[in-house]
Design a protein around this nucleic acid. Structure first.
Lengths: 212, 212
DNA sequence: TCATATATTATCCAGATGGATAGTAATGTG
DNA sequence: CACATTACTATCCATCTGGATAATATATGA
């Protein structure tokens, strides 16, 4: 029951939507980490006072949790296979895996803050953060591992290695170029977020991990 | 000219070495980011007062710079090929690339804070940090790209993709499992830093990127 | 129009932080 | 032993931070 939704008697609409605040929070947390991020800094990104943020969210940790929840919902929507696609691309097939990988590369390029936030927040999480990550990540990760096992059985993935190892190798291969895009620009003068670069990387990923 | 080194007349040896302080700084910066890290927190990790840190380093940014410099020196030493190895493994050969990749995986597993720090600090660096990264990263990155070009010409790397794309794909594939080791433990109950897991990942990386 | 629920502003506060400084302890050299 | 040099402690301070609260604005429904 978000305080941003108006209920029975609900005058005066908010100037900034819930999504605006959470996106600003994601960017601030991604850039500065949980401790480095400030409520005032998040507010300033969308011309709010820090009091307004605290009006909608009890404290910084709850805001972080809401932002991460928003992040995963958005990712789920982005990567989800439609009913038609589910029929066309059955689980465990090469075609499905290739399609998923390509879509995942597009996701990483569109929301590079995802990788950055996870990298920062999973280093030494507080008990509450551990719990949050368990809730948000455990199930999708385990189904991903199942899918990898299936792909191994079907001979699509020929690697003989622990599924966890394969999974993090591939996700790292997809994410890294975009999560470090500013570094790539400075050191190699390569614009990783250009349309062409994204397409090239998707091609490379598919060619590397789903050969033939 | 570090104030930690004793010069002509130099009584009273320091209780903590320069390397101790920089390692503590690296861990704090890796865990909490530049803004989130505190000088007092770094000092506390090795039982120093924050005054002592400021005695050796003028300010937080200089300390960060020294820590990153230390990081890259350590990496260079770790990955460097000895003279004997340079003879045995000429540039642009498959054997050299395989050896390098395996060594890089070991490095990532031993110093996971490396990937974390770069991920945090290259997101929106201040002008001074941009300059620092240029100085430390530009040259090694460009020689790495040259090596990739050579490997492509020699047919060792068969991928037809921009070298920057290949480079960040491979480094991400190597780093990710270890940089996110705490996450892997929580979500998949897989100990990425165990000797066996490291060896498995090195095998997987070599098999994937240097096939045959 | 007026009550009411929500949105927003303007403060205040205690604690932490980076930075500064004055003074003290230890140790090698002359 | 004195003295210079380095290592270290103990403070102090302005600023920023998360959090709290009281007053105000705005739009809707009765």
């Amino acid at each position: 029951m978000s305080t941003l939704e108006q209920k029975t008697k609900a005058p005066k609409r908010p100037a900034r939507s819930r999504a605006d605040i959470l996106q600003a929070a994601l960017e601030e947390f991604a850039e500065r980490g949980f401790d480095g991020a400030t409520v005032r800094g998040i507010a300033a990104r969308i011309d709010l006072t820090h009091g307004m943020i605290r009006y909608h969210y009890d404290n910084k940790e709850q805001l972080w949790f809401a932002a991460v929840e928003h992040l995963f919902e958005r990712q789920f929507e982005f990567l989800k296979f439609s009913d038609a696609e589910e029929l066309e691309f059955p689980r465990g097939t090469r075609a499905r895996f290739a399609k998923f990988l390509r879509r995942y590369v597009y996701y990483c390029a569109k929301y590079p803050e995802h990788a950055r936030i996870l990298m920062q927040e999973t280093v030494s999480p507080t008990p509450r953060m551990r719990k949050a990550l368990k809730q948000q990540l455990r199930e999708p990760h385990q189904t991903a591992v199942e899918e990898i096992r299936l792909l191994q059985e079907n001979g699509v993935l020929k690697m003989d290695a622990p599924p966890a190892s394969i999974m993090y190798m591939i996700s790292g291969a997809c994410q890294n170029l975009f999560a470090l895009a500013p570094e790539v620009k400075v050191t190699l003068d390569y614009n990783a977020l250009s349309r062409q670069a994204i397409e090239d990387h998707a091609d490379l990923i598919v060619a590397t991990f789903v050969p033939e």
